[in-house]
Design a protein around this nucleic acid. Structure first.
Lengths: 154, 154
DNA sequence: CATGAAATAAGTGCAAC
DNA sequence: GTTGCACTTATTTCATG
């Protein structure tokens, strides 16, 4: 993971459809060397895949909520986690430090869908004690572009 | 946005590198008709772009924190928002309902980097009154794949 | 929307340096 | 890692039905 790999990964996160010729310019390498780099980044698992990036509003889920959840201690939480993984509206589910047990990121079509999610999917889960819903009023920034660290040489 | 477009967008979010031939099978259309659909989805802004999906750990930012921030009311928050947009460690910044003003999603290399971020970048911002850091202990689920609503016909 | 052909562009592999 | 070339594959465009 040198400086060149960093430049390549950043460029590919910004636009993965550019092609090797243009990427080679960014990398400062030849096309074949660049292709080799990309291939190795995929093999090493740094690049997990290639995805189309959708506009959430155009995709029909303009409502964004984060939900803090407290699950009763002592219980087996496997069922809860499995349920969250299955729910496609749940984009993220993290076990967190502090007063709460989990933080969810959820995208939905509208408020009725949120109501249904909270009642039928979330509070219906056994062990769920407390729920706090943080509705996003405005999204200042939302990106999946990771700041690739120039750290570990290989 | 009919059922076919839904299938296409879901498939392209899962794997955007498959090619039109394979996508056509999923869509149940011919290759040319499928290509036309994809093109129109891009033109309509449903598909915003094509991105490489990186492994956060391999990319060198294994630490994930969500940060709740209260900004003093009455102040102009443009400066705060601009600062968050500039920080590449800040993946998301949402203005939210409830006791807090903003919710941030931040990815960092390690705890010293978190310390530096909280002190030098966040608390240094004028107007920031209260900060609560939620450290992710375990990520149960983290995806950017949107559940495309079969809603609005066009 | 399907089919098929032709033209274009891009990725892949290999060899020599 | 570079350059160049041939090989192969995919996308694009267009005509016809």
């Amino acid at each position: 993971m040198d400086e060149i790999d960093r430049n390549i990964t950043v460029a590919l996160q910004l636009d993965g459809s550019a092609g090797l010729a243009e990427l080679a310019k960014v990398a400062g390498l030849s096309v074949s060397a660049t292709a080799e780099r990309v291939k190795r980044l995929e093999e090493r698992g740094v690049i997990r895949g290639w995805r189309a990036d959708l506009d959430p509003v155009a995709a029909g889920c303009p409502l964004l909520v984060h939900i803090l959840v407290t699950v009763a201690p002592g219980r087996d939480e496997a069922a809860f986690r499995k349920a969250m993984r299955r729910q496609e509206a749940v984009l993220e589910c993290h076990a967190i430090t502090g007063d709460w047990t989990y933080l969810l990121k959820v995208r939905l079509a509208d408020l009725p869908a949120l109501d249904a999610f909270l009642n039928d999917e979330l509070r219906a889960q056994s062990g769920v004690q407390r729920v706090e819903t943080l509705l996003a009023i405005a999204t200042v920034k939302e990106t999946s572009i990771l700041p690739v660290a120039p750290a570990t040489e290989e």
